[in-house]
Design a protein around this nucleic acid. Structure first.
Lengths: 355, 355
DNA sequence: CTCTGGCACTCGCCGGGGTCAAGTGCCAGA
DNA sequence: TCTGGCACTTGACCCCGGCGAGTGCCAGAG
């Protein structure tokens, strides 16, 4: 198993079954209780037919291997990031995700009332936060391979034109263009009709160049608008901050949430959004969930947090996920994220390509 | 002075000058230091030519009048909500807002790069949070008196139509309509052209009824779309959650921010947004800033916080403000809010009605 | 009548010490 | 290899006393 997301590739990281059982018990118990777990407690929950002393020896070994650690000498053990990592890897190998149906049902119901794509994405954050009690992140589908359905120009004033771009996935982008030289309504109309015909149904990726070429050949007074139009299309492709939807921030501050001093930094990160967009995008290359735990993050600000993300696919690809303290219920989170991703996929497909 | 926002209308609430000076000193000192203020400290900062003992007597009186209180017996005094209220009322009577120019300049610069109205509003939250180190709120202008500039229909699939509504203030609303019975492109075209002519330039408020009437007279297969269209317009008017922009949440968790247990509830409130929209809307009726301090809020969740809001006016009205702990620098916040409101007004005017 | 210095009082904070319980590491023996 | 036993460590809790900040009040001065 060569998982690139594994930072430490230790030859000893194949644990014998008893150690694994003990680690499992520690992670599971710690996640629910939040308190360090002692050997006695492990014996109780792990159903091992050995004494606490034996477990202690094993725990010592697990600590040396880096899977668990003690907050202080006379305390129980707490999973390290590596411990969590082992736990989730094993989790995914053992019982690959049981969707018990209740989840999908609840999700489908909660996502029923949306009135446009943005609404769907926003509601998705709600659902996801509700299921996991964590901060949820949803990245809107990429548009570069989507087809342009409509370009509309509205001249709000002689020097200000509003551009509307609509893709066949129902995504809308609007942008104001401020012109140096005023244009008449007629001018704008000419540009509109010229562009509308040659653009309809093309891939977003092709259009910038196309419009730019039109600008070269157009009468001088129209060139500025066409150039700006090309730029606006280019910007449509960017994974801008407005492509990320965030929900459930309250969970961060609630019980079991983050340390106060981390909170502020994380909230900033959530507001800035472009960094998160980039990280989430990494999950879009494969259908496997992306899981980053504590030290596995590139950003120091994300130490102490774990991210579970999963892509969803239409004609194009987007992704969603949750962010929370490393001490989270990975089993539940993993299945929630996957169920919601599926459901979102289905919903968007229904809305855009009309099933 | 009969201010309706004053909860307690106490006959004694006209303080003699010395008491007022002491209260001022306590508020000012407490706001910067965060620690309860003792009589000695008051004498130092308030430049009074009396002894600490005299100040103590006055402080006792102030406490009985409800302007200050002690966290515990042997601690200094802390302003109560009523104390803050007196402070800001006096503040506004004395030196009515000096804009030193530096502020406006910084603001204008920071708001320069926006590409559409939403962008401007989002950037405004950034600027406001940056100036005040508090959570900032911006409510987009109301649209009921705005004029419709464009209705566009895009049929994404036979049963899904995307409606785009654009007002002359540059505001865009998009909504998906799912039809029970499929329509051809030609059908949608017919509706589009029928609606486009009769709607252009009308006030948003009039249009719902107009489109509904068109539905009555239209051929049966087009009725469903027209009815839905009328509903979509109606929804445009609503002060929905998407009209509120929130920024600077990180300030809540930073030093000098809120208590941890309040944090979660406030974050929830910020995410839900519709409640805030309603509160902010109250500031839109007058040009005076709206100030709510602690117990003056209707919502229990907002105890411990203060809100300072101010409307801005285009053809229509919107509002913006900040939310933070009652212990905030009211003088600075008041002027920041007002400067930013003015600047936003100017920016939006430039973008929409083309100066 | 007002202001002032003085003084006793209250209370939170801090550090020390003692107890408690949890949990550990290790060892000798089965 | 496992187990019971045991000494050890350490944080949590509580009580205590001293310290300092700040107060309320009072008697006396202006």
């Amino acid at each position: 198993m060569t998982d690139p997301s594994r930072l430490v590739t230790d030859p000893d990281d194949v644990l014998d079954e008893r150690k694994a059982a003990i680690l499992r018990a520690i992670v599971a118990e710690y996640v629910t209780s939040g308190e360090p777990i002692g050997s006695k407690r492990v014996v109780e929950v792990a159903q091992l037919d050995v004494s606490a002393a034996t477990v202690r020896n094993e725990m010592q070994a697990l600590e040396e291997l880096g899977y668990i650690s003690q907050p202080h000498t006379s305390a129980g053990r707490v999973p390290t990031d590596k411990g969590y990592r082992y736990f989730v890897d094993e989790l995914r190998n053992r019982h690959r995700l049981v969707d018990d149906g209740r989840q999908s049902e609840a999700v489908a119901q909660l996502m029923g009332t949306a009135t446009d794509v943005e609404d769907v994405l926003r509601q998705t954050t709600q659902v996801l936060s509700h299921l996991t009690h964590l901060v949820s992140l949803v990245v809107a589908p990429a548009v570069d391979t989507a087809r342009l359905k409509l370009i509309e120009l509205v001249n709000l004033s002689p020097q200000v034109v509003l551009v509307l771009l609509v893709t066949d996935t129902g995504r809308v982008r609007k942008q104001l263009i401020e012109l140096l030289t005023p244009l008449t309504e007629a001018d704008v109309d000419r540009v509109r009709s010229a562009v509308a015909d040659s653009v309809n149904g093309r891939r977003v990726g092709e259009i910038e160049a196309l419009v730019d070429r039109m600008a070269d050949e157009a009468p001088p007074e129209l060139r500025e608008l066409l150039r700006e139009l090309a730029l606006a299309v280019a910007r449509l492709e960017e994974a801008g901050p407005d492509r990320v939807y965030v929900g459930g921030r309250a969970a961060l501050a609630g019980p079991g949430g983050l340390e106060r001093r981390d909170l502020s930094r994380i909230l900033e990160l959530l507001e800035e959004r472009v960094t998160l967009a980039r990280i989430l995008a990494e999950s879009a290359v494969t259908d496997e969930p992306l899981i980053r735990i504590g030290e596995e993050h590139d950003l120091v600000d994300l130490q102490g947090t774990a991210l579970v993300a999963q892509r969803y696919q239409l004609a194009t690809t987007g992704s969603l996920g949750v962010l929370g303290p490393t001490r989270m219920d990975y089993a539940n989170v993993l299945s929630s994220v996957q169920v919601v991703a599926e459901q979102l996929q289905r919903t968007l497909r229904r809305l855009s390509s009309g099933d």
